[in-house]
Simulated assay, not measured.
Amino acid sequence: MAIRNIVRVGDDVLAKECRPVEIFDNKLRQLLDDMQDTLYEANGAGLAAPQVGVLRQVCVIDVGDGLVELINPEIVHVEGEQSGAEGCLSLPDEWGMVSRPQRVTVKAQNRKGKWFETIGEDLFARCICHEVDHLHGIVFTDKASRMLTPEEIEQMQKEQEQQEQKGKRRKRRR
């Protein structure tokens, strides 16, 4: 396993359509393992293959409930709407307001090629949509209603830190 370089916006690979995965072999497993390591090293919630320079329909997501690998993902159902701040490992320190479905059902394959469906809500739904967009050459700035100012980003980070501190205090009391 290895940490791969994350492609930044401006690189043409992020604007291209990815090809479906047809061969489920050691090369794919290595890509998935490397993407997992890269995601965790970057402290991200999701990572798509084009973000590491690979034009294949592969993404990994972990919003705190464990890693989910999606190969050849297709969103088959959406419900509701949520709007919120969204960022991307390919655009460090940039955040924008993006509307996404509140709940999505995605059909995908696992690393062995077996098809499955999973349902994502809230942040998981947002991440599924964000990563699937990457597979079609779309970055979140293409969908953002507006980008956040540096002051708004700083305030958002402060609020996040406060939430994390509250969570740590609750765990200690248990």
Rank of each mutant, 00 (worst) to 15 (best):
M97T: 06
Q165I: 13
F24E: 08
S99R: 15
Y40V: 05
V21E: 05
A42H: 07
G53I: 10
E86Q: 12
D33T: 11
I138V: 15
E117N: 11
D25K: 06
V76P: 07
L47H: 02
G66S: 10
E164G: 07
G87H: 03
A45C: 08
I75V: 15
N5E: 15
R174M: 12
K27R: 15
R8V: 10
W95H: 12
F116I: 09
A2F: 01
Q157R: 15
R103A: 09
F140G: 05
D93P: 04
V68F: 01
Q155K: 07
H77L: 13
G64P: 00
A49N: 10
W95I: 11
P92M: 11
Q157W: 01
D25E: 03
I23H: 03
I138L: 11
I75W: 01
E152I: 05
S145E: 15
V60D: 04
E94R: 14
E69M: 11
L135E: 00
R170A: 13
G80R: 10
Q155A: 08
T118K: 13
Q102Y: 04
D11I: 06
K158W: 04
K158P: 05
Q51T: 07
C59N: 10
Q51E: 08
R4Y: 03
V76Y: 01
M147Y: 08
R19F: 00
I23N: 07
C129T: 14
L28M: 09
T118G: 07
E151G: 12
N5I: 09
I128M: 06
K171H: 12
E79L: 10
V98G: 11
P73A: 09
T149W: 02
I75M: 04
L89D: 12
K107L: 13
P73T: 06
E94W: 07
I3P: 00
K114F: 02
V60M: 04
A125Y: 09
L91M: 15
Q102V: 00
H130F: 02
L70H: 00
L47I: 04
L39H: 02
Q36S: 13
K112E: 15
T105A: 02
E81N: 09
I71W: 00
T118W: 02
L32G: 06
V104F: 02
V68P: 00
P50V: 06
D37K: 15
G96A: 13
V58I: 14
R173Y: 05
V13F: 02
K16Q: 15
V63R: 08
C127G: 05
P150V: 04
T141Q: 14
Q51F: 00
H130N: 01
E41Y: 06
L32R: 08
S145I: 12
G87E: 08
G46C: 03
V76M: 10
D37E: 15
V104K: 12
V13T: 07
I71T: 09
I6M: 08
E69C: 12
L123A: 10
V76A: 11
G137M: 08
F116L: 11
C88S: 14
K158C: 07
G66M: 11
P101K: 11
P150T: 02
R170N: 13
N110I: 02
M147A: 14
V78T: 15
R126A: 14
D11S: 06
V98R: 13
D142I: 06
L148F: 06
Q82A: 10
M1N: 11
M35H: 01
